[in-house]
């Protein structure tokens, strides 16, 4: 199990590094897919099968494809020119190291940090429990509904921006 986790961690970190260092934007997007797939593998190792599959469906199936489309349709030159680093790279590295250090300190104080993840008791319906939690009032129904309204608002906004009443109807 530890070996699997280490392999996954190396895959995630190495492909995340390649995302930011790759000069070719489509390659960067494909490395991002590899990194996101690694995160899905982490979820699978934590027995969070729903999260693992949704990670692949949403991030690889929708968001990464959207990235690739955007890069291909908006750029004439796929390869990035100019220097790979700008003058803020030191500060960015510092901030990311501090974030990592802070998270590591916080998590090492948590009691569950060094324990292996427990298996579900037999017959436990994890997906059903998650679904119930999403719609029950004493759990996550409010954040869930707020997120839904936000998504609908974003959808309506996107349609409004894209809709041009003068050229929209091609039947006339």
């Amino acid at each position: 199990m530890t070996i699997l986790f280490l392999i996954t961690a190396v895959v995630i970190l190495a492909s995340a590094m390649m995302v930011v260092t790759s000069r070719n934007l489509v390659h960067a997007a494909l490395w991002l897919v590899a990194s996101l797939f690694g995160v899905a593998m982490l979820y699978a190792q934590l027995n969070a099968s729903f999260m693992a599959v949704v990670q692949v469906v949403v991030y690889i199936g929708a968001i990464a494809i959207l990235f690739i489309f955007a890069v291909m349709l908006t750029r004439r030159e796929i390869r990035d020119k100019g220097p790979g680093l700008n003058k803020n790279w030191g500060i960015a590295a510092l901030v990311s190291l501090l974030t990592f250090g802070g998270l590591a300190v916080l998590l090492s104080n948590w009691s569950g940090f060094s324990q292996p993840s427990a298996d579900f008791p037999s017959g436990f319906d994890a997906v059903g429990a998650l679904g119930n939690a999403l719609v029950s009032p004493d759990a996550f129904v409010l954040p869930f509904e707020v997120a839904s309204i936000l998504l609908v608002a974003a959808l309506v906004g996107a349609v409004y921006i894209a809709y041009n009443p003068r050229s929209g109807d091609n039947r006339k």
Partner: peptide, 12 residues
């Protein structure tokens, strides 16, 4: 959902 996820890899 696994079926849909496999379809995502096919799209890729």
């Amino acid at each position: 959902l696994y079926l849909v996820a496999a379809g995502a890899i096919g799209t890729l």
